Amino acid sequence: MDKVCLRGRDYRDLAAVEIHAEHGVICQIRPLPQDDALPIIAPGLVDLQINGFAGVDFNHYPINEESVLAVTRRLWQEGVTTFLPTVITNNDDDTEQMVRGIANARRRFAAVGYGVAGIHLEGPFISAEDGPRGAHDRTLVKAPDWSLFQRWQKAARGDIRLLTLAPEWPGSAAFIRNCVQEGVTVSLGHTGADAAQIAAAVEAGASMSTHLGNGAHLLLPRHPNYIWEQLAQDKLWCAMIGDGEHLPMSVLKVFMRVKRQRAFLVSDTTSLAGMPPGRYQLHIGGDVVLSEQGRLSLADNPGLLAGSARSLLYGVNALITAGMASRHEAWDMASVRPAAMLDLPAKGGLAVGSPLDAALLGENGTGELKVLSTYAQGECVWREQ
């Protein structure tokens, strides 16, 4: 679509505006007379950690290229216009095939090529210890291997944009420097590293913490420990699962206060996000139950989470309804901030020169937001019926 005009109330201050775009890029924003009947308009959401959605698992080989397109389209309903399919620890050959399948889908389908900003490789270069390792297969965890990573990056045609690793492995600093030189963002996660190892990783160029506070030992020294140490590193961005269950709201509040503009949300969804409630069998987690409220837990131990099944929009609304963030801040934490961390074009949000990736929103009496329609590159890609 060459030209498009959207009218709405800017999510930051609810001022009525008219946004003009040409060839998918915002070229003019004009004020309008105030009209409270207009929907709220906000930048599209950006999710840097999606393991799967609506029955599609990015960690189950083979990956059907059409399924990547299906997830892209399904996420439009949640207001997500940019995301990173996330591939976790697996055997070398399956990892190669999974990143190749996602890369092929990006080149086959224009919608995927635009909506998928790259691949997040979460492992296998993580801690082998119980707790920090999380649900990753211990037998497949290994030390950072540059030649192996290059093999995967070649299969992905350079699409691996974000890599999560544990910096306590020998040689991690050199590996991180190699990644950064090749344009790959390195995030610390699933780690039991000490203060010196974390500092060395940051010095080498690591710039993010993956779902901080999760993928950790059940018991930690009060200080020092690797959560405090990552919080204290000013150069690290802090990704958080904001559903109120992976982290208590009080912990989210502390992380937000410490990291400020470098705190942002991810969903870390599994393939059961967007699926009907019920009992399911996962290849990671086994027998699980998805509740009516969207909570995913082990069938034989409902107190233990089995991953996330709630979208990024849920996390935004959790912060708003808990009174922990304004609409403006909560939405930024799930849109322009993660885009800025990865230096994506969407980092400009609703501004001249930025892509017109946007969600038109309704708001209920508690401030909770609902997506009415979604635009990607100025084109309406989903609208509520």
Rank of each mutant, 00 (worst) to 15 (best):
D2M: 04
D2P: 00
H20L: 13
D35H: 11
P43T: 11
V46G: 02
Q49S: 02
G55N: 14
D57G: 11
E65N: 01
E66N: 12
A70V: 00
V71Q: 14
R74P: 00
L75P: 13
L75V: 06
Q77I: 00
T81H: 10
L84A: 14
P85C: 04
V87A: 01
V87S: 04
N91D: 06
I102S: 09
R108S: 12
R108P: 09
F109Y: 09
G131N: 02
P132S: 02
A143H: 05
W146S: 14
W146H: 10
F149I: 12
R151I: 12
R151Y: 11
R151C: 12
R161S: 15
L162M: 15
L163A: 10
L165C: 12
P167S: 15
E168W: 09
S172R: 07
A174N: 03
E182K: 13
G183S: 02
S187A: 15
S187N: 08
I198G: 09
V202G: 09
M208K: 10
P221W: 10
I227A: 08
Q230N: 04
L231Y: 15
D243E: 06
R257I: 01
V258D: 03
Q261G: 07
A263I: 00
P277W: 01
Q281D: 02
I284D: 06
G285S: 05
G286H: 09
S291C: 07
L298C: 10
P302L: 04
A306Q: 03
R310A: 07
V316P: 14
I320T: 02
T321Q: 15
H328R: 14
D332H: 04
L342K: 08
L342P: 01
L342D: 00
D357A: 06
L361K: 13
T366H: 10
L369H: 04
S373N: 01
T374F: 12
E379V: 05
V381P: 03
R383P: 01
